[in-house]
Amino acid sequence: MEGDSPRMFRVRVPSDAQRFGVAAVSLYQLLTKAARKLKLAERRDGPLRVCLEEDGTEVGDEEYFSVLDRNTCLVILKHNERWTGVGVHAVSHAMVHFERCTHDVLEIFRNDPNGKLTNILKNFLNSIEDCSERESRQDDPTWFEGVENRFKHKREEMRHRCKTRMRGYLSDAVAYKNKVPMEHQKRYEELLQLIRNELKTQCFNQDYFDRSAAVEVRLCDNNGQFSCQGAYNKQDCQYQHKINPYANWESRIQFSVWNLDHRCRTGARQWRW
């Protein structure tokens, strides 16, 4: 990458929200400068790693690093540290308690013959603000909290989020090559190159999350609502899970860990959505 212009990134460590600016032309240079800036250079407890602050996607190679946007927020990790993304910890914690209390809640509603508790729940759900009809930063500033200033409309941020997610999947596939038997690695690299070329041709399928895209391309409806498509080996989701990341800030954050194949990986467990 010699001769490339350096790009500015914002780096931090998991235990401190303060960010520092670092200019780099390569992943290696970023790690070197970040370690110095964050006073991690002297530590010898394993190689440092880099991941996206927003969703925890690991930046594991120069190829993925080369497509990161300027001013991307990155978290520098020691070998034994993990980062699952802004808001993900809260969502995961909530899901644990949701699983534990679902049975008790259903029992309460079954024993509510007059429907009093049901009406209370309906009133509560109706009170949750739904701003999905608003599109611009000016009309719904709360939704854009933590979103880069260059994005002025929700669809722009959602397209960027889709591209980031697809690039993360590609990075995972590249990293998996080390686990492929040597006799199959050449064929695996050929397949990776085909996938890489197709993704670039399709702009990393950025239209998937854009509610203004053509119906046959996007994965949501006109209002921005996504429906769980079920596990990979099922035709659909029996629970009919739905989410609209365009509705409010909370839904946007939750959507960052909402997998469209019905499973979200958190640590060693897999949560059903």
Rank of each mutant, 00 (worst) to 15 (best):
residue 1 M to I: 10
residue 1 M to E: 15
residue 1 M to K: 14
residue 6 P to T: 04
residue 12 R to K: 14
residue 15 S to N: 14
residue 15 S to F: 13
residue 20 F to V: 04
residue 24 A to Y: 04
residue 25 V to P: 00
residue 27 L to S: 03
residue 45 D to V: 08
residue 49 R to W: 04
residue 56 G to R: 05
residue 57 T to E: 02
residue 69 D to Q: 15
residue 70 R to M: 15
residue 71 N to F: 14
residue 73 C to V: 12
residue 77 L to H: 01
residue 77 L to A: 07
residue 79 H to C: 14
residue 80 N to E: 15
residue 91 V to P: 00
residue 94 A to F: 11
residue 95 M to S: 08
residue 96 V to I: 09
residue 99 E to F: 13
residue 99 E to S: 14
residue 104 D to H: 14
residue 105 V to I: 15
residue 111 N to S: 12
residue 114 N to I: 07
residue 116 K to L: 09
residue 119 N to F: 01
residue 120 I to L: 08
residue 120 I to V: 09
residue 122 K to D: 09
residue 127 S to A: 02
residue 132 S to I: 00
residue 142 T to Y: 12
residue 152 K to M: 13
residue 156 E to R: 02
residue 160 H to G: 06
residue 163 K to N: 03
residue 174 V to C: 11
residue 175 A to V: 09
residue 183 E to H: 14
residue 183 E to R: 11
residue 190 E to Y: 05
residue 190 E to W: 09
residue 194 L to G: 03
residue 196 R to E: 15
residue 197 N to M: 07
residue 198 E to A: 07
residue 202 Q to E: 15
residue 207 D to Y: 00
residue 208 Y to I: 06
residue 211 R to A: 00
residue 211 R to I: 01
residue 211 R to Q: 02
residue 215 V to Y: 06
residue 216 E to K: 12
residue 217 V to T: 14
residue 217 V to W: 12
residue 218 R to Q: 13
residue 224 G to K: 00
residue 229 Q to E: 07
residue 231 A to H: 10
residue 236 D to H: 06
residue 240 Q to Y: 04
residue 240 Q to D: 12
residue 244 N to P: 11
residue 247 A to H: 00
residue 249 W to I: 05
residue 259 N to V: 10
residue 260 L to N: 08
residue 263 R to T: 14
residue 265 R to I: 05
residue 268 A to P: 02
residue 269 R to G: 10
residue 272 R to P: 00
residue 273 W to Q: 10
